[in-house]
Design a protein around this nucleic acid. Structure first.
Lengths: 351, 351
DNA sequence: GCAGCATTTGTGAACGCAAACAATCGAGTA
DNA sequence: TACTCGATTGTTTGCGTTCACAAATGCTGC
C-alpha cells in the first residue's frame, strides 16, 4: 500500500490528487496532458501529489471520452513462422516508440469470416489502427472490405494493390537470386515455390520466371511447398531424381533446408552437383551444411515502416478517396532485399 | 453506412438500440450480458435492433464501470526466438478461447526498470492478469516484486519458486537426454549450455550434471552459448579440438545446429565420431544434416496451461498468502518433455 | 488607482455503460 | 375480489476522465 493512498483501499483517482495538491481535478488533468497555462509551481505541486499517491490515470475513462485508446491492433496468421514473428516484434517495438499499445489477434484459419471477426474484435477494443501480418491474397481481399472502418496497413506483402503497407521487394529479390545463378553458368534454375495463395510466394515465383524469361531460358515447371522444411524435403527428392537439375531457388530458407537434406540423402552434392539458394536469411542459414546462399530481408525494418505508414493514416484521416485516386492512395513502402552469398551455390560442374 | 444507423453519423449506442426496440437501455444491457428475466420476445426484439443498427458495445465504457477489461497482458523478451514465439501463440489461442484480449509488451532489455515499466504499462491498460514469457532469473525476481498488484504467471521456466506458472520439466528432459547418451556407451557427455541467467539453461545444465553424477562420470567443464547457432558454432570448434569428446548435449537446437556445422568443418563426423543432442525439437530438427536427436517440448501446451493457471488466479482472488503458505501457493504446471531419437546420436566408435 | 487583457484556475456537463433500486405486470391464492 | 409474490421492465446514479465554458487572478499602461 503506497504511502498516502486513499484510506478505503480504492485506487486513487484524479480527484484524490486534486485534493492533496489543493487544486481542481481539471488542473490535474491539464498537468497530465501537458496542457499550457499551468503555473510551473502549480504543476510541481500536482506532480508531487501524483507521486505521493502513486496515481495512475484510468485509461478506460480517458478512452471513453477521447475516443482514442492509444492501442493498435495486429492481425497475424502463422505467427509462429520466422518472418511473421520477426515482423510482430518489429511492429511492437515501433509501436512502443510511438507510445501505442499493441493488441494482437492471431488467426488459425484464414477464412473471410475469421478475418472479419478479428477486425471486429479489434474494433471493439477501439484500436486506432490495424497492422496485418498476412500474406494470403484472399485474406487481404477480405480485409480490404473492412477498410474505411479503421485505418489498416499490411506488413509483408507488397503488391496487394488493395491496402497500403510495407513489404520487401520480393520480386527484385528473386530476380537477383536467379540472375546470380544464371550468371554462374547454370542453364536454367528450378524453383520450389511457397503456397499458391501467398502474395510473397507469387512475387518470388514471378521474379524467378522473369529472370528466366529475360535470358530466354527454359521455364521449368516449379514445385510448390508450404514454407516448411518438410515440404522442401519432399521437393528435394523430386529434384534429386532429375539429373538435369543444377540449380534450385527456394522461396524460403526452411524449404531450402529441407531440399539440402533431401539432396544429401540422395547422394547429390551441394554445391558441386546442385546449387541451392533460399530466401529470408534466417539466423541459422550461415550454419547449415553447407551454409546457405539466400536473400536477406530486414523484418524489423518492415515492421517499423509499416507502423510508420499506419500512424500516418491515423493522423491524417483517410479523406474518402475517389475511385480515381485509389492507386496513389495505397502507398507501399518497399524495402530492398539483399543477396547473401554463401557456400551452397557455385558454378555448375560441367557444361 | 449500415441501414438504420443514427442520422448524425455517430456510432449507435445502447440508447439508440433501446429506442428502436421500444425498451429501456437497461433491458438492452440485460440482453447483452445474458441476464435472466428478459422475456424471449423482448430479447428477440432487442437483438433485431442490434443487428439493424450494427450496434457494438463500447468496451471502454464497460471497462470503466465493471473495472474489468477482458484483457490479459503478455510480457515477452526475446519474442523472436523459436520457443517464446510458440508460447506467445499458444497463449493467444488459449486467451481467445476464454474470450480474453491479449495486449503484448515485449522488452529488449531485461533490466529491473524495464520490467517494472512493462508491468505498469499493462496495468495502465487495466489488464486483468499478466503472463510472462521470460526466463531470466533476474527478470522473474523483478516481477515477483510486483506480484500482488496483479495476477501473474510465468510461462516457460518451472523453478522460479517465486511465481506460479507452467513450464516444461527441463531437468527431466536433460536427464533423459544425457542418460540416453551414457547408455549408448559414452564415457561422459559434454554440454553446451544456455546463458547463465536463464532458468531453463540452469535447469538443463543441472539435469546434465545430475545424470553424470549418478553414474559417477566425470563432470567436464561446460561451455556456455547464447541460444544462437553462432554461439553453438563457436563452441563446436572448441569441442572438435578435444579428441576425447564423443558426445555433446546442447541446451537448444539452434546451438546444436551450430555445433553440427563446426564439427563438420573440423572433419569430425556425426554421429560416428561425436554424438550431438539438442533441446526443443524445432520443426527443422528432422531435416538437419544429420537429423537431430533432441528433446521435444510442447510449447503450445505450455501456453495453454499457463493461461489456465492465470485464469484460475484471476477468478479466485489471491487472498493474501501467509509467508508460510507461499510455497504451496505458487503452483507450477509441469509439462513432460519427450526424447526424440534421430541420426545425430549413436554409440561411440571405439572404446 | 483602475480599466483592460492575458493568463491561470475552477465548475458543470458529457462520454456509454452496468448496478442498485423502484415500478409494473401477471398469475395464483385465500 | 383483493392480496401476494415472482417475473419483467424502467429510472437513477456513478464509474474517472476530458471538454466547454465561467471565474478569478495577475500584469500592463495610463
Amino acid at each position: 500500500m503506497p504511502a498516502g493512498s486513499t484510506a478505503d483501499g480504492a485506487l486513487p483517482v484524479m480527484a484524490d490528487v486534486a485534493r492533496l495538491a489543493g487544486v481542481s481535478h481539471q488542473t490535474v488533468s491539464r498537468v497530465l496532458n501537458d496542457r499550457p497555462n499551468v503555473r510551473p509551481e502549480t504543476r510541481e505541486r500536482v506532480l508531487v501529489a501524483i507521486r505521493e499517491l502513486d496515481y495512475r490515470p484510468n485509461s478506460a475513462a480517458r478512452t471513453l471520452v477521447t475516443r482514442k485508446s492509444q492501442t493498435l491492433g495486429v492481425i497475424s496468421f502463422e505467427s509462429t513462422l520466422y518472418g511473421p514473428s520477426q515482423m510482430l516484434y518489429g511492429i511492437e517495438q515501433a509501436a512502443r516508440a510511438a507510445s501505442y499499445f499493441i493488441s494482437i489477434a492471431s488467426l488459425r484459419y484464414q477464412g473471410i469470416h475469421s478475418v472479419h471477426e478479428a477486425v471486429d474484435r479489434l474494433r471493439d477494443q477501439a484500436v486506432e489502427g490495424i497492422a496485418v501480418i498476412a500474406s494470403q491474397g484472399s485474406t487481404v481481399a477480405a480485409l480490404a472490405q473492412r477498410v474505411g472502418t479503421v485505418p489498416m496497413v499490411t506488413v509483408g506483402p507488397t503488391d496487394s494493390g488493395q491496402l497500403p503497407g510495407a513489404g520487401v521487394n520480393n520480386h527484385a529479390g528473386a530476380l537477383a537470386a536467379v540472375r546470380y545463378l544464371l550468371d554462374l553458368g547454370h542453364a536454367t534454375v528450378h524453383h520450389v515455390a511457397g503456397p499458391k495463395d501467398w502474395l510473397e510466394a507469387n512475387a518470388r515465383e514471378a521474379g524467378w520466371r522473369q529472370a528466366l524469361d529475360e535470358r530466354g531460358r527454359q521455364v521449368v515447371p516449379c514445385l510448390a511447398g508450404d514454407w516448411s522444411a518438410r515440404s522442401g524435403y519432399e521437393a528435394g527428392f523430386r529434384l534429386a531424381g532429375d539429373l538435369t537439375v543444377t540449380a534450385v531457388f527456394c522461396a524460403n530458407d526452411h524449404m531450402a533446408l529441407g531440399v539440402l537434406r533431401a539432396l544429401q540423402e540422395s547422394g547429390r552434392r551441394v554445391p558441386e552437383d546442385i546449387s541451392v539458394v533460399g530466401f529470408d536469411d534466417i539466423p541459422e542459414a550461415a550454419f547449415l551444411t553447407p551454409p546457405l546462399t539466400t536473400v536477406r530481408q530486414d523484418f524489423g525494418e518492415l515492421g517499423r515502416r509499416g507502423l510508420e505508414l499506419l500512424l500516418q493514416r491515423i493522423e491524417s484521416p483517410p479523406l474518402r478517396p475517389s475511385p480515381r485516386s485509389r492507386a496513389t492512395d495505397h502507398r507501399v513502402a518497399l524495402v530492398a532485399p539483399e543477396l547473401v552469398l554463401r557456400a551452397s551455390s557455385g558454378r555448375p560442374r560441367s557444361r
